[in-house]
C-alpha cells in the first residue's frame, strides 16, 4: 500500500493537468433524453461512467454503447446505482428526443445528455475531453471526439478511463473496483 501511495504522490503533479476534475467540482448543466435538467450535484454519492459521442456516429458510438450494455448486464443489479451517461458533442442535431430514440436501443440504465453548446463545452472541459466538428462535402459534418469511457468513484473522484481499443476483458474488473 505504501508503494502505491508513493507512486500516486510522485505522479500527481504531472498527470493532474489531464485528469478530469472530481464530479463535485464540475459546473455544467445539461438536459437528459427525457428533458430533465441534470447537474453534477445530482450524481453525488454514486459511481459514474461517462462517455462522449453523438448519435450520427455510425461506428465508435454504437460500438461503445453495445460494449457498455454488455458490461452492465454482466454486473447485473450491482450496476443499478451506477450513473451511465452519453454526453453528446453534437447538440445541434442531438436534441433530447434524438437521444431518447437512440439510447432506447441499449441498456435502459444509459442516459443521454445534451444542452446548449457552451454547457457541452463546459462538460468537456471538466472531463478533460475534446471534440471537433469536421465538415464534409455537401454541408454534412461529423465529429472527432474523445473515445474513452470515464469512471468516477461514488465520492466523485476520478477513477480511471477505459480506452476504446483496450482489451474489453479488463473493463468489468475496473468497473467493479469503481462501484465498491
Amino acid at each position: 500500500m505504501l508503494g502505491v501511495g508513493a507512486y500516486r504522490t510522485r505522479n500527481r503533479p504531472a498527470r493532474s493537468e489531464v485528469l478530469p476534475v472530481p464530479i463535485g467540482q464540475m459546473t455544467w448543466t445539461l438536459t437528459d433524453h427525457q428533458g430533465r435538467l441534470v447537474r453534477p450535484s445530482d450524481w453525488a454519492g454514486r459511481p459514474v461512467m461517462v462517455f462522449f459521442g453523438f448519435t450520427w456516429c455510425p461506428d465508435v458510438c454504437p460500438t461503445t454503447l453495445s460494449d457498455i450494455s454488455l458490461w452492465l448486464e454482466e454486473l447485473g443489479a450491482d450496476a443499478d446505482r451506477l450513473i451511465v451517461a452519453l454526453i453528446s458533442v453534437d447538440p445541434e442535431r442531438d436534441t433530447p428526443d434524438a437521444l431518447a430514440g437512440y439510447v432506447s436501443n441499449f441498456d435502459p440504465r444509459i442516459i443521454g445528455l445534451t444542452g446548449p453548446a457552451d454547457e457541452v463545452a463546459q462538460a468537456a472541459a471538466d472531463f478533460r475531453a475534446t471534440y471537433r466538428r469536421v465538415d464534409k462535402e455537401g454541408g454534412d459534418y461529423t465529429m472527432d471526439h474523445t473515445a474513452g469511457v470515464f469512471l468516477f468513484h461514488p465520492d466523485g473522484r476520478f477513477a480511471s478511463i477505459i480506452d476504446f481499443h483496450e482489451d474489453r476483458r479488463f473493463a468489468v474488473p475496473k468497473l467493479r473496483r469503481t462501484l465498491s
Partner: peptide, 13 residues
C-alpha cells in the same frame, strides 16, 4: 470507405 482511428484518445473517421 472510412477508417476509425483513435489517436491520443480521440476518435476520428
Amino acid at each position: 470507405l472510412h477508417e476509425t482511428v483513435v489517436q491520443d484518445g480521440i476518435a476520428s473517421m
